[in-house]
Computed example of a mutant assay.
Amino acid sequence: MTRTIQQLFDLEGKVALVTGGSRGLGLQLAHALGEAGARIMLSARKEGELEEAVADLQAAGIDARWVAADCAKEEEIRKLSDQTFERMGNVDILVNNAGAAWGAPAEDHPVEAWDKVMNLNVRGYFLLAQQVAKRGMIPRKSGRIINVASIAGLGGNPADMNTLAYNTSKGAVITFTQALACEWGKYGINVNAICPGFFPSKMTKGTLERIGVDKLAENAPLRRLGDDEDLKGTALLFASDAGKHITGQWLAVDGGVSVVTGG
């Protein structure tokens, strides 16, 4: 019997692991999945921020808990995987969201900063996806992986935005998503990417202050930046059975900026 739309989007009984989930886009994604019925495991580096985020989710009636981990470090990723499976029993949905950026002209970009961005934004995504898939998704032949990329991964920037490593890392995330979807489709694992545009966050605070919210909004056909609701629908589509025939895809949630720039 064909399911209703409410049944297709229902995540009751599912477990979602969200990295970089203590604030900003990660917390918005956790809310989306939790509001649809999933139990949430949040991860980030700072315990205090995680405690506040989990309290916020629990106040909304969401079953949530946390593990502090630095997803740029392999041993921390293993700890995160161990504790999540021990405490939650399984991971049905992985949201790779933890990320870092660095601003510097390409000719002066520190190698250490390049490595920091790549280790978290690309290597960390790979290692955690590998851990979660081998321990749960592959044996169960079921799973959803959502990688948070960026419209910065679709091309270059205006001349006054020097984020070469960040752009490169997010381009790599898009290709990683496509290649992983091809390999793991046989296991019933869907792998997709969300490419946000400008959203107010700690990472974008400097750019917003330097260029201005109104100026950045002018570049979008919708004349606005993203808000605290704008990623929820895409996340739920990719995480639920409503998107069960979608894999290897990326979707820009950017007010139309990537259409203007040709991304």
Rank of each mutant, 00 (worst) to 15 (best):
N192H: 08
P139Q: 06
V117I: 11
P110Q: 02
A101H: 05
E49C: 01
I189Q: 00
A152K: 07
Q6N: 13
V259Q: 11
M118L: 15
E76C: 04
V213A: 03
G185Q: 05
F85S: 06
V132S: 02
G89M: 08
V122K: 05
S142P: 00
L94K: 05
N97K: 11
A242I: 04
A106V: 15
V253G: 04
A113E: 15
L33Q: 04
E107T: 13
W66C: 00
F198G: 00
D241H: 12
V191G: 00
L25Y: 04
V173N: 02
E183Q: 13
I246P: 00
R140G: 00
A36L: 11
E51P: 00
K244V: 09
G188S: 11
A53Q: 02
E49K: 14
S22A: 13
A217P: 07
V260K: 13
A53G: 06
D108N: 12
K232D: 08
S169K: 14
V173F: 03
R23M: 12
G13E: 11
W184Y: 15
L127M: 14
Q6H: 12
Q249V: 15
A172H: 08
P110M: 07
A69L: 06
W102P: 01
R39S: 14
S201W: 00
N167C: 13
S150E: 02
F176S: 00
A32C: 08
A113T: 09
P221R: 12
P158K: 15
V191N: 00
Q28P: 01
S142W: 15
K205N: 09
A113H: 11
L251I: 15
K215R: 15
M41N: 01
A32G: 12
M161E: 13
G37H: 02
R78W: 04
R65Y: 11
K205A: 15
N167Q: 15
G13S: 14
Q28F: 08
I93C: 05
T207A: 12
P110V: 10
E49S: 13
V15K: 01
S81D: 10
Q178M: 13
P221F: 09
D92T: 04
G185K: 11
Y125Q: 08
A172E: 05
G263Y: 01
A217R: 02
A106Y: 13
M88S: 05
L8T: 05
L127G: 00
T168W: 10
G248T: 10
E74F: 13
A104L: 02
M1V: 09
T207R: 07
V173I: 15
I189P: 00
D115S: 09
T234V: 12
M137V: 10
L180K: 01
G185D: 08
G243M: 02
E209W: 03
L80A: 04
G262P: 00
N219Q: 12
T247H: 05
N147P: 11
I211V: 15
R23Q: 14
T168E: 03
E107I: 14
S22P: 07
A38Q: 07
T175C: 03
S169T: 10
R223S: 10
H109R: 07
E47A: 15
G34F: 01
A106F: 14
I93Y: 10
E51G: 03
A69V: 08
F198L: 06
Q58L: 01
G24V: 06
E49T: 14
D241C: 02
